[in-house]
Design a protein around this nucleic acid. Structure first.
Lengths: 217, 217
DNA sequence: ATGGATCAGGGGCTTTTCCCCCTAGCAATT
DNA sequence: AATTGCTAGGGGGAAAAGCCCCTGATCCAT
């Protein structure tokens, strides 16, 4: 029987490499590559490397995170099967990933036996949802919350940059300096981001970012 | 050569078991047990099981976390060598663990080669500090910062209550309403909390709380 | 070529936050 | 009996944040 191929995308090298040795031990699986983020994954495809049967994808990563990667995959590698493997168990992240096309979602505290089963399921059946994830899915049809989630992804580049600065003790004037813009322009980004994320204060903004693991603190 | 023995304490089973297979592959190491939290570790000693040369300890765990475990070990297993292996890279956690007696501190995103070296160092030399951790250590002797860390836990009941409200989109006037106080009194709590936590803005306060997991968002 | 979105900038205004200063009651130490 | 610490309250002022309004310049797609 031909071995199933796997690519691991996770910035935690120790975990990634440990996982590789676990997977290799499972027999029937082969790890083609370990990549540190989504950017490296796009490079991987670019160099026409062997497409894996399954991608194990982390969510919180520098450079290009799980959600961005998932979105990219959906566009450029439609058929690629992905199992999200992460610490993030908040509903928003789960929903975001599943809607971006993830066919499975696992928390890293899963039992290794279940892990093997989940890989098998995603590769053969195309999906795997643990019970925890299923309960999160139930909520995913509530309209208002949906809207918020979509808007979160519709921030422009500059708005994202602003957002990162906003999650600090810098004043808007400081941020204007950092971004080399007029304070008034920064003010506009504030307004548009507030509206898109539906918050009313800067504190609300920070909380929103934390809840959704936009970046590590 | 006798194999070095290791016990892994980490609630993320998949990671723990993956790590086990990595360590076993290293040759020269033997994993005696995988435990889910500090409580299980105390049970382990209670049953007079073989004491390992090294404990790999996670910080964020349910039941009995890394800091509590470290404190317990310092009292009951003074000679036990411990390498902290975790995601938590904020200074407070690092200092707390080192002060509780950890002889080494590693982030999970370390390169596996360095990981082996770190294990070797802790077992043979009794310590290992990565450069990141060393820089954190530098600050630990600056008196003011030390005080801050302690004060973080010395918030009064009312300040604590205020803090929770402050991590929301409520204005101080709103908070005054919620706490049934005059806005001016709330203002005083703000000032005292700012000073104790050494932040300059409310956003900084929220970030501080998130970094230190004061409460779930 | 005409919207539509993104980017960059501004005026004017209100509210909130932030930073000092201060008083006073009450409880537990010293 | 005095100090310290927590509680609750206040005055005044400067800075920042928040909320409307508006003008252009690109660039991109119908």
């Amino acid at each position: 029987m031909k071995k199933k191929t796997v690519v691991i995308v996770d910035d935690h090298l120790l975990f990634a490499q440990s996982l590789e040795s676990l997977i290799t031990k499972l027999d029937g699986y082969e790890v083609l590559a370990i990549l540190k983020n989504g950017k490296e994954l796009t490079q991987y495809y670019l160099h026409k490397r062997r497409k894996p049967d399954l991608i194990l994808l982390d969510v919180k990563m520098p450079v290009m995170d799980g959600v961005q990667t998932m979105t990219w995959l959906k566009e450029h590698q439609t058929e690629q099967k992905v199992l999200v493997l992460t610490m993030e168990d908040d509903e928003e992240t789960i929903i975001k990933m599943l809607r971006a096309g993830a066919r499975g979602y696992l928390l890293k505290d899963i039992h290794p036996e279940n892990f093997e089963f989940a890989m098998k399921m995603v590769i053969e059946q195309g999906f795997y949802y643990s019970s925890k994830i299923q309960s999160a899915l139930q909520y995913s049809d509530q309209p208002e919350k949906e809207v918020t989630r979509d808007l979160a992804e519709k921030l422009t580049e500059r708005e994202w940059t602003f957002l990162k600065y906003a999650c600090s003790e810098l004043t808007y004037k400081d941020i204007a300096g950092e971004m080399e813009l007029s304070p008034k322009t920064v003010e506009n980004y504030r307004e548009s981001v507030f509206k898109k994320l539906q918050v009313r204060t800067r504190v609300g903004l920070v909380i929103y970012c934390m809840k959704n693991n936009f970046f590590k603190l």
